[in-house]
Design a protein around this nucleic acid. Structure first.
Lengths: 354, 354
DNA sequence: ATGAAAGCGCTAACAT
DNA sequence: ATGTTAGCGCTTTCAT
């Protein structure tokens, strides 16, 4: 057995003092060099930088924060319930992965770190949880993901705290930057693809109403149908869960004039639709074309692999980080929501209508 | 356009001072209550706690760290190259997800946060990168994952810094805790399952040698084969990549006395084997039984779904966090490597030998 | 059992 | 252009 209770209180190995002493300058000059302030003579910069490199000095973000500077921390807020459920289910939902890597790598290029936090959207103590995270971490910025992006409690709180934040998957004006992949356009593209294949009875399985993007996707589908002079009666609603997808699929397939093509608002509901077809000996894509709205890894391994909307999640996270850092730097930020377009990934689940 | 350059230097909303004033006690007493020190009268604790709750006070971890206490931060170190490659490929590798959630949720229960950091294993500036992260974040602990867990540079550096750390996927004694899923036993179980099904020509596709676990898995297979009196000549080596899996599969299937069952050391190589079989009209599991060593989401969606070793990655990460926090608390820690056993997940890719 | 004082590493504000 | 001073919010001494 080993005991380390007596572990020496760990101090910073090399501090700004050491560098200052080594370079024969004041603390402040070192600080200025570290923070790339303009008012330092080049020769001084060189001397200090040399000392920094030789000593391997890296500033402590805790101390920087205490000194009134940034924390170099960005918090990415995800929905607890949903994130944990997806993780437990192990069904290949790679949202967190895409989010984490996209945000993290961009953070790294700016000397920032990203911390993932989970909070319940449907909770009365949501304000307490959020305030706790903010008070503890003092992040320089917060990235909101759906459905938090539309949660007025969260948005108002962040605004009141004057923390710069980004709302991913939101188009609303207001506090924080809105960053979206344009769900409406994505749904439109998917629908138009099916129309081009000759389909006229195109069903749509919507997501839950607490995600605003659910409505946008329906809008896009509806608009494309209207443009083509087609009826938009084949709308079914789901909740992003597998079971709801089954029910929706059954409804669309059992309609008097049934669907010959279906767009599902996420991968689980698309998978459920595929399974429902298999049960009923409906062959995809021969008898039914199917499009998923999530390009998660599994939709490439189903039979047939699914044509899907590819959401630029990593890019959104990266861009979110850049917006926050830009605002911190006092740079002007766009008033208009930024749009990173989704693409339609063509695979084998869509075919011309028979 | 909006400018926020003049954003007021953000201060902690409610500090220990406010609580002290509100409760009519000294800073120190509040600190003692927060840190659950025993030497405070119950009535005092109650009074202070009431003020804390009412004011919604949460200590700043930056300030705590500056005061010489913990940082409440744990760094999880992953291999940069591999992690980025897996993420880009979007092939459903959910290692990071499992790692993150498992570690994060356990951290949360203890008031800790986990920060994922990527560093190159094969790099001369690895020491600099690691020291930079340590100096900047001052983490209370570090979780090492393969292949970092066996990297002497990293291990020695962490030991020298006296930072408590855990080596996941390692059995070596030495600094830091070793935490493993017992790869040897997992390989043995998989092999024995095939032997029980009547297979005698069982091939094994090994992983790259810079992962020690690659050798352990081979050992487990070899031991099981020896126990059953079977030859262990059907060993092929891969590098965890798809292409290497194809080559290995071809070698095992083209042997003079070919394999009737194959165990692949990871999912990509198992998938490659499955694809190779399909090309050659070898039906799985009728003609060949196949076991994957990764229970990633996709292996459930292949045809047939693959029998696979399920690695308890999330549990390992959670346990790693607990070990670090326990050591920080001065509690005794086990000298022996901790083993969280893997399970064999039976699906449809294994069948009795024909 | 509680309080007062000093200092952690850094930066902002104010000198020079 | 550089140095000096005074905190930031907290925890550790050390006193009482």
């Amino acid at each position: 057995m080993r005991r380390l209770s007596g572990m020496a209180r760990r101090r910073q190995a090399v501090t700004i003092k050491h560098v200052a002493a080594d370079a024969g300058v004041s603390l402040q000059t070192v600080s200025r060099v570290v923070n790339k302030e303009p008012s330092v003579r080049p020769e001084m910069v060189a001397r200090v930088q040399e000392a920094i490199d030789r000593l391997g000095y890296v500033p402590s973000i805790a101390a920087q924060r205490m000194g009134g500077s940034r924390s170099y921390l960005i918090v990415a807020l995800n929905d607890r319930e949903r994130t944990i459920a997806d993780w437990r289910a192990r069904q290949g939902t790679d949202w967190v992965d895409q989010m984490l890597l996209g945000g993290m790598l961009t953070c790294a290029t700016y000397g920032y770190r990203m911390i993932v936090e989970l909070v319940d959207t449907h909770s009365d103590h949501i304000a307490r949880e959020l305030m706790g995270a903010i008070a503890a971490l003092q992040p320089d910025g917060v990235i909101l993901t759906p459905p938090h992006s539309e949660n007025p409690l969260i948005v108002d709180l962040l605004e009141a705290q004057r923390i710069s934040f980004v709302r991913i998957g939101s188009r609303r004006a207001g506090a924080g930057f809105a960053l979206t992949m344009d769900d409406e356009r994505a749904a439109r593209i998917a629908t138009e693809h099916l129309i081009a294949l000759g389909h006229e009875r195109i069903g749509f399985i919507a997501g839950p109403p607490d995600y605003e993007l659910s409505a946008w996707r329906v809008d896009g589908w509806r608009a494309a149908m209207a443009d083509a002079g087609l009826a938009d009666d084949l709308l079914a609603s789901g909740d992003f869960g597998y079971a709801s997808g089954q029910q929706a699929a059954v409804a669309l397939l059992d309609a008097a004039d049934p669907a010959t093509a279906i767009i599902a608002s996420n991968d689980q509901m698309a998978l459920a639709t595929l399974e429902t077809c298999r049960d009923r000996k409906i062959v995809v894509p021969r008898d039914l074309s199917l499009i998923s709205f999530d390009n998660t890894p599994i939709v490439r391994f189903t039979h047939p692999p699914l044509t899907a909307i590819d959401q630029p999640i990593a890019e959104l996270a990266g861009r979110a980080v850049e917006l926050i850092i830009a605002e911190l730097g006092g740079r002007e930020a766009p008033e208009q929501p930024i749009v990173l377009p989704a693409k339609l990934e063509l695979r084998q689940s869509t075919a011309p209508r028979r």
